[in-house]
Amino acid sequence: MCPRRARCFNTTGPCSPQHHYMLPPAQRLPEARELIEMDRYFVLHAPRQTGKTTPP
């Protein structure tokens, strides 16, 4: 649980920029938007509990 008025790392459920630390995905995955628009699949590899599936 985050202290009031402080951001924290979220590993469970949706992220909110006001409450959680977030990195903009477009800078890290520039080709992802194009793949999504073409209905193509891709895989993100990262350590456990890093929020890979958390929507912005």
Results as ranks from 00 to 15, higher is better:
23 L>H: 04
39 D>V: 08
30 P>R: 07
54 T>E: 07
20 H>W: 04
28 R>I: 06
10 N>H: 09
47 P>L: 07
53 T>V: 09
20 H>V: 06
48 R>E: 12
11 T>Y: 10
12 T>Q: 14
18 Q>M: 09
22 M>E: 06
21 Y>N: 03
35 L>H: 10
25 P>V: 07
10 N>T: 08
1 M>H: 13
19 H>D: 06
52 K>M: 07
22 M>C: 08
26 A>H: 08
32 A>F: 00
12 T>W: 10
38 M>E: 10
24 P>Q: 00
36 I>T: 07
27 Q>K: 02
24 P>A: 00
55 P>L: 12
33 R>M: 03
35 L>Q: 13
13 G>H: 03
42 F>V: 04
55 P>N: 13
7 R>Q: 15
50 T>L: 01
9 F>C: 13
52 K>F: 03
54 T>F: 09
49 Q>R: 13
56 P>W: 15
42 F>A: 05
34 E>C: 00
27 Q>S: 05
49 Q>P: 08
25 P>G: 02
28 R>C: 09
11 T>D: 09
27 Q>T: 04
6 A>C: 14
5 R>T: 12
5 R>V: 10
47 P>F: 01
51 G>F: 02
4 R>K: 15
19 H>F: 06
7 R>V: 10
42 F>Y: 06
29 L>K: 00
19 H>L: 08
13 G>Q: 10
2 C>A: 14
31 E>M: 07
14 P>V: 04
22 M>N: 07
36 I>D: 01
9 F>I: 11
51 G>L: 05
11 T>L: 12
47 P>A: 07
46 A>N: 03
50 T>K: 03
20 H>F: 08
35 L>D: 07
50 T>W: 01
34 E>D: 05
47 P>Q: 06
21 Y>L: 05
9 F>D: 10
43 V>E: 03
5 R>H: 14
17 P>W: 03
15 C>S: 13
10 N>I: 03
28 R>D: 05
44 L>T: 01
17 P>D: 05
37 E>P: 01
18 Q>W: 11
21 Y>D: 03
18 Q>A: 14
53 T>Q: 13
4 R>P: 15
24 P>R: 03
21 Y>P: 06
6 A>R: 15
24 P>S: 00
43 V>N: 04
53 T>W: 07
10 N>G: 09
